[in-house]
């Protein structure tokens, strides 16, 4: 990608295809479904990288369950916006609308847990609010919020154990929480097409995360919660450098066989 990155919100810049949304769909809803679907897809992909490398067998099973829940959510959401495989495999990096938070590399287990904690807390608040409404995503959110409640519980349990475990685990968990903190402002930017304004969820998110971190004996990070780049972030199709490599790996096989079915 070159210099054009500084423009704001280029909706489909660099996209190889623009998968047509199902006819009759409200484009704003479609865009929102795409953004939420991308969150779920990208995080599932990252969690899938753990397979075979988890700290203990029981955790292999737990992480895979979370990844499978997210992948299921992604497939439903992307199908609202078009063909799930075209959207997943044929879009360029700049056309992805996921939060930068979910694309962050796994790092050590502490980074993965911090990412899970931040994201699942947001996702649960958002889906609970969507489920309470009567918008087009209410039904999906009602099912997903139960899954996400478990993801949040999993992340909280581990945050407590890593924060209040050994000296090493506390240090690692604090480092991870600090490192990912700058990606935690983005989820609360306005997102059109939803009958919930994400900005209204921010206080509850901060309260919840603060409570868990405090209970775990961790310090709530003090740094800024958004980057200094005014062009925007993931929701505007602006991503971090490792994301392109993640996509290259995810997409290469599908793209090597244009038109093939699997």
């Amino acid at each position: 990608m070159t210099g054009t990155d500084t423009t704001t919100a280029p909706a489909t810049a660099g996209a190889a295809v623009t998968a047509p949304a199902p006819t009759g769909a409200d484009p704003a809803v479609t865009a929102a479904a795409l953004a939420l679907g991308d969150d779920a897809l990208v995080l599932a992909q990252r969690l899938g990288e753990w397979a075979g490398s988890a700290p203990v067998l029981e955790e292999e099973v737990a992480l895979a369950n979370i990844a499978l829940d997210l992948l299921g959510q992604a497939r439903i959401l992307l199908s609202l916006a078009g063909d799930e495989d075209e959207l997943a495999f044929l879009r360029e990096e700049r056309a992805f609308r996921n939060l930068q938070l979910v694309e962050q590399p796994n790092g050590d287990f502490a980074h993965t847990i911090a990412r899970q904690l931040y994201f699942s807390t947001y996702q649960r608040l958002l889906y609970a609010a969507l489920a309470a409404g009567d918008g087009p995503l209410a039904g999906l959110a009602a099912k997903a919020v139960k899954e996400v409640a478990y993801h949040q519980d999993h992340a909280e349990q581990w945050t407590l154990r890593l924060g209040d475990g050994t000296e090493e685990s506390r240090r690692r968990m604090q480092t991870a929480c600090d490192a990912l903190w700058r990606y935690t402002g983005e989820p609360f930017q306005p997102l059109g097409g939803l009958d919930v304004d994400p900005t209204t969820l921010e206080t509850a998110w901060l309260d919840s995360v603060t409570a868990v971190l405090t209970r775990a004996g961790l310090t709530v990070p003090a740094g800024p919660r958004t980057g200094a780049w005014r062009a925007g972030a993931g929701r505007q199709g602006l991503h971090t450098e490792s994301f392109g490599r993640m996509l290259a790996e995810m997409q290469h096989l599908h793209r090597s066989h244009p038109g093939a079915t699997w």
Partner: peptide, 20 residues
């Protein structure tokens, strides 16, 4: 059976492993 550090985690591991 399974391994877990404490009862809370044992319950969660059991859910993940034996009820999927």
């Amino acid at each position: 059976s399974l391994h877990a550090p404490d009862a809370e985690m044992a319950l969660r591991n059991a859910r993940d492993l034996y009820t999927r």
